[in-house]
Design a protein around this nucleic acid. Structure first.
Ligand SMILES: NC(=O)c1ccc[n+]([C@@H]2O[C@H](COP(=O)([O-])OP(=O)(O)OC[C@H]3O[C@@H](n4cnc5c(N)ncnc54)[C@H](O)[C@@H]3O)[C@@H](O)[C@H]2O)c1
Ligand SMILES: NC(=O)c1ccc[n+]([C@@H]2O[C@H](COP(=O)([O-])OP(=O)(O)OC[C@H]3O[C@@H](n4cnc5c(N)ncnc54)[C@H](O)[C@@H]3O)[C@@H](O)[C@H]2O)c1
Lengths: 212, 212
DNA sequence: GAATTGATGTGAAACAAATCACAAAACACA
DNA sequence: TGTGTTTTGTGATTTGTTTCACATCAATTC
């Protein structure tokens, strides 16, 4: 009863994130109002697209007056549940896990890595600011902090097995760094981040462009 | 004369990477032939989609006989220029840069990080297996190794400035980890990897799914 | 306060991607 | 050699996304 994970993140959602980053920047610069074409210019899409995207998420502005930046950001925060804290666990404190555990932007955006786990918890304990637990304490921590989302940074070979365990303990969303296609039940969201593929596609397009 | 970077990586290309990963696995297991529906089952797409994707990249199989895995992989390697080595530079040896510099899969796929650069090259020199240079030597190395693609892992604030420098020295493709929208000429490929957005979209979909 | 201007919001149109349907090829076997 | 079966490859169709076009509203001007 397991389905294969695909890339499910919609382009319109990605663009909404772009708009938001842009709005945050404008706000810091003291700007208070934005028009669809302001965002369009800053993000490289068309103003129609901006308005259509807002329409999809039922975001409304003021006819003629454009969008009030504070208002818009607040609406987005509600849509993305950013008004609450989100507790995350990170599994696999190798090179990638360590880097992610130190990334300050997650906290700035209300996403808290409450604990990290490794089959060998002693390896990174000294270098990390976040507690590193053995896998045995996974359930306890997930329950205590009501964790629903996990970052998976274990070797490819262990990825499926660890994902199964996470899901058994109630995890509903996984950002997976292992180049493995996880099989998961349909009510679990997987977002695969495959950095080799990202690099390769750039190489592919660079070659294509240079030939033409 | 600068355009904003968008996400340009096509879905069909992403799927091709999926198929390839799958073929590599099958090959390791000793399988020699694959059918469109084999790949479909393994990757969670339809067999029509597989054949359509192959058609887009002019990959042909054998009527009734399916695809010879070795043959298919060789064709893909040609399409993605994987028969040659690709020299890469990595800029910014902080937490993320260090993790990436140690990632063995890049080398396995013929993508070689020939050198890394940092404004403060002494910081990581001891921990890294790859030489860490100061930014002053960027041009020299790019020229010597004919580097066309770079990984950018510097702070958001420096990302545009460093990208400009890279492009000035002949870089044509960048995988950008900074949450910054780079403005680059139209003949430069940018692939933005924004891990905050990846996490947030999972959180978004998890909430959506739990409410329904 | 009517006319004008400038922006939003959204159906309709154009375009792109995925699915369907089936002809064509390859093989098996009588 | 001929008939049946299997799987590819690709036009035709459907579905999804982006762009267009304009009615709508709010502010400004005369
Ligand atoms: N390092 C990178 O830059 C990078 C880039 C892209 C993808 N990745 C992927 O991310 C994953 C981790 O990469 P890495 O470089 O950090 O590898 P790593 O070997 O440095 O770290 C893996 C960690 O996972 C732990 N681990 C192994 N099996 C486990 C299990 N069953 N349960 C819990 N923990 C377990 C190990 O003890 C180790 O600390 C890999 O799948 C890799 O392909 C890494
Ligand atoms: N750490 C993560 O897990 C993570 C995750 C996602 C995105 N990122 C992004 O990747 C980038 C790097 O993150 P990090 O955590 O490694 O940061 P970091 O501060 O650890 O490392 C940044 C490195 O860049 C170097 N640097 C600064 N300015 C430079 C310049 N002008 N030229 C060359 N080098 C310069 C610094 O000396 C430092 O070594 C950031 O943009 C960050 O937002 C990091």
């Amino acid at each position: 009863m397991k389905q294969i994970t695909k890339h499910i993140i919609k382009n319109s959602l990605k663009r909404i994130f772009l708009y938001r980053a842009c709005l945050v920047r404008l706000k810091m610069m003291g700007v208070e109002k934005a028009f669809s074409y302001t965002l369009a210019n800053e993000t490289g899409v068309t103003s129609d697209q901006v308005r259509k995207d807002f329409s999809e998420f039922s975001i409304k502005g003021n006819k003629r007056g454009g969008y009030d930046i504070n208002d818009l950001l607040e609406k987005m925060e509600n849509i993305f549940h950013r008004n609450k804290y989100h507790n995350i666990v990170l599994i696999g404190m190798g090179n990638m896990g360590l880097a992610l555990s130190k990334y300050s932007k997650f906290v700035q955006r209300n996403m808290n890595i409450v604990a990290t786990f490794d089959i060998d918890p002693f390896k990174q304990k000294l270098r990390s600011d976040i507690p590193v637990y053995s896998m045995g304490r996974l359930k306890e921590i997930i329950d205590r902090f009501s964790v629903k989302v996990a970052i998976l940074a274990v070797p490819e070979i262990s990825a499926q097995e660890v994902a199964d365990e996470l899901i058994r303990h109630g995890i509903k969303g996984i950002v997976n760094f292992a180049p493995a296609l996880l099989k998961v039940p349909p009510d679990v969201i997987i977002n695969n981040v495959n950095l080799c593929d990202e690099l390769e596609s750039v190489i592919y397009y660079v070659h294509k462009l240079m030939k033409v």
